[in-house]
Write a protein that binds this DNA or RNA. Structure first.
Lengths: 330, 330
DNA sequence: TAGAGTGGTACGCGTAAGGGA
DNA sequence: TTCCCTTACGCGTACCACTCT
């Protein structure tokens, strides 16, 4: 940088102002600096800037849970929004789906890494029930935004309304006349799974119907398939799957047992992933805009970093997309 | 750090040695330092370390192309391998799928960001034909590993053998007696698409069969669906889809036109994404271990960073998984 | 007095290098 | 060889001072 200053015949200080945009740099100086930068191939050193200014323009993203459609869409939205503002994203994806000691240690380690790197904020995508206290100490000192079905005490939350999604999905089925509705839920440690289940129960209650015994999967098609092999097909007329992939696996299992949607049962999923409309039959699903959710999460943490202000909690609303996997009860 | 030294009654230098593991620190000093670190809640500052040592223990990952199963799996493998060695990942996902000027500018900008952040190396996941020259200047000075169907001049490459995958998929069909085989290919800018197409052509040539006019998609199920609506169903007896998602869309379109696999035609995909076995019918596909590919890419760049040595190019081999979407020609 | 434009100095937090017991 | 210390940076920015309209 001193070199640039020398070539441009200004002080290093002025070059710094040129890059940060703080303070006054005259037009001629500006031009000479630009020329010198081009000539020398100079590139500002973010590390040094970060050390001195204690702002890194970097956000840590902690992604918990196995890699799936929703998670990556969120990361895509985060990434695009970050790039648009010049921020970098330090991403740690943890393939954990439980809250045992090892998993918590991994989370702690990833968070330590972010703190050591002096990130300006942390986004936690779909935190577990049980990891809350790991964030406790952090959000006193650093902006934290969770992407979560529910707002947490100290952190801001960008929320996809899982409760509403569960309600919407189940109401779609009750609206078609179904009362014996099976719920294929996600993991109990997942806020989204819990909230979708609540929505399911409340929608049933509107019609005085009883929930059937809960069947659990882990969001994967394989777990949906496993569930489909063990359920009693006479116990339900419709299924509300916690996500599209479990619905896919479930349909496959029932097909192998001679039952097909929508003739033998109706099924609705959540996410409306792009593939869902091409399933056989095309899957009715509740759309959640995860890309928007990620972008929102970034906007929230960015605002918090810049101004210290908390943006109002933002909610992505679910939208029902009825297709051929659901039909009126016959 | 000086504070830690004061409390532990050693110099800051010794504390530094304690953390970096370079040089000698006696057991008692070690204990006192540990106690002091715990007492003060001290956390080393990676920014300062990076500035002084000019090693950031951070790798930049440039992910090009729309978010899909293969890309996510690669990133997952990279992330896990990085965490295992204490490295951080700066990830930029660019939702671009063409090589127009704007896209190249985005790539350049993302790479600039990595260089400004003084990453120790760059991984480019599935580069385009046409972005090569953007990396030219970089790999002279910085380790670059591409995750690509083909090794590039200056960069190491972790490779999933797309040519072999195309060969395998097509041979599976010719082995079942098919000769009029349609290829639903990925974008022409994609090395993987080009190589899979070569495999297809060579496998046909083994039987003196002619390729049918190429149909292109963009890897998405929607593009497969669009293709399936326009093709002439009498022109082929089998389809080789460039990936599973296009196969899904294609099957859906043909189903709507009254044609079903495997009775009316056979279809094979590539990737063997976890959902593929639950499609209707279960999709024959060529498995590629993208997670392993990502882990391999990290191992290569890590070795290059640590020792300067180039690891031998590593190739992930495809594996055919025949299921019910393919049948002998009737 | 206010504001535009520029420069000098100290400092952020560690590590490399080299010396000394 | 083991152990520890002192000194000099790495590369920018915060802060303040200064000049000139």
């Amino acid at each position: 940088m001193a070199d640039v200053g020398r070539v441009a015949e200004v002080s290093a200080q002025t070059v710094s102002r040129f890059f940060t945009g703080s303070g006054y740099v005259s037009a001629p100086a500006r031009e000479r600096i630009e020329a010198a930068v081009a000539e020398l191939g100079y590139r500002p050193n973010r590390t040094a800037r970060s050390l001195r200014s204690s702002r890194s323009e970097t956000v840590g993203v902690l992604a918990m849970g196995q890699s799936n459609y929703g998670l990556w869409s969120i990361l895509g939205g985060l990434s695009r929004a970050a790039r648009a503002t010049g921020y970098s994203l330090l991403i740690a994806q943890l393939d954990i789906d439980t809250e045992d000691a090892g998993a918590l240690a991994e989370v702690r380690h990833a968070l330590d890494g972010f703190l050591s790197s002096r990130v300006d904020g942390i986004v936690v995508s779909t935190p577990f029930l049980g990891t809350e206290h790991l964030l406790d100490r952090i959000w006193d000192t650093l902006p934290v935004v969770t992407v979560s079905g529910r707002p947490w005490s100290g952190a801001d939350a960008a929320t996809a309304d899982s409760y509403a999604a569960g309600l919407l999905a189940t109401r779609h089925l009750t609206g078609l006349g179904h009362r014996r509705i099976l719920h294929l839920a996600g993991p109990a440690t997942r806020i989204e799974a819990v909230d979708r289940n609540r929505g399911y129960q409340d929608a049933l209650a509107e019609h005085g119907a009883e929930p059937l015994p809960l069947v659990r999967g882990d969001w994967s098609a394989a777990s949906g398939h496993a569930a489909g092999l063990t359920v009693d097909p006479d116990a339900f007329t419709a299924v509300f799957a916690g996500n599209d992939q479990m619905a896919l696996g479930f349909m496959s299992a029932l097909r192998s047992r001679g039952f097909a949607a929508p003739d033998d049962y109706s099924i609705v999923g959540i996410d409306d992933m792009p593939d869902a409309r091409y399933f056989a039959p095309p899957l009715s699903s509740v759309y959640l805009d995860f890309t928007e959710l990620g972008a929102t999460a970034f906007a929230m943490i960015h605002e918090r970093i810049r101004t210290g202000e908390r943006l109002e909690r933002r909610i992505v609303e679910p939208v029902l997309r009825a297709r051929e996997s659901t039909a009126p009860i016959g």
